[in-house]
Measured scan of single mutants.
Amino acid sequence: KWTITVQGEEAIKWAIKVAEARNLDYTVHIDGDQAHITIE
């Protein structure tokens, strides 16, 4: 299990796209213009 933090709307969209493309189980916690994405 690991967490990445991305900043900015484009980076958030990209990170989610990558997680979905790899069929990963993930949760997103949005904090202002940052998102913390935890991959199970």
Rank of each mutant, 00 (worst) to 15 (best):
D33C: 11
L24Y: 13
E10I: 10
N23Q: 12
Q7Y: 14
W2A: 03
T5Q: 07
H36P: 01
I30W: 12
A21G: 09
H36V: 14
T38W: 06
G8M: 04
V6I: 09
I39T: 02
A11Y: 08
H29Y: 13
K13I: 10
E20L: 06
V18S: 07
E20V: 08
V28S: 02
R22H: 15
T3A: 04
K1H: 07
I4W: 12
Q34S: 12
Q34K: 14
T3L: 09
D25F: 13
W14N: 08
K13D: 06
I30D: 02
L24A: 07
G32D: 03
I12M: 09
T38I: 13
D25P: 14
A21H: 10
H29W: 13
I37E: 00
I37A: 01
I37M: 05
G8F: 05
G32H: 05
I16G: 01
W14A: 11
V6P: 00
H36R: 11
K1R: 12
T38S: 06
K17Y: 10
N23D: 10
T3K: 07
R22V: 14
V28N: 01
G8P: 01
A35G: 05
I16E: 03
I30A: 04
D25A: 14
R22P: 04
A11E: 07
D25W: 13
I4R: 00
E9R: 08
Y26N: 00
N23R: 09
N23Y: 07
W2Q: 03
T3G: 02
H29K: 12
A35T: 07
W14E: 09
Y26G: 01
A21E: 15
I39Y: 10
A15L: 12
N23L: 07
T38R: 06
Q7G: 04
I39K: 00
A21C: 13
V6Q: 01
D25K: 15
K17A: 15
D33I: 07
D25Y: 13
I16P: 00
Q7E: 08
E20D: 09
T27K: 09
D33H: 08
I12L: 13
K1D: 05
I39R: 00
R22L: 15
A15N: 02
V18R: 06
T27D: 05
E9L: 13
D33Q: 09
A15P: 00
E10P: 05
K1E: 05
K17V: 07
Y26T: 02
L24H: 05
D33G: 08
E20K: 06
G32I: 03
Q34R: 13
W2Y: 11
V18I: 13
E9M: 12
K1G: 08
T3Y: 08
A11C: 15
Y26R: 00
A19H: 02
G8K: 02
T5H: 09
A11Q: 11
E40G: 11
E9W: 14
T27P: 01
G32L: 04
I39A: 02
E40H: 15
V6S: 01
A19K: 02
K17D: 10
Y26A: 02
Y26V: 05
A15K: 01
Q34W: 15
K1W: 09
I4L: 10
A35N: 03
D25V: 15
G8H: 03
T5I: 14
I30G: 03
W2F: 11
A15H: 06
K17S: 14
E9H: 12
D25I: 15
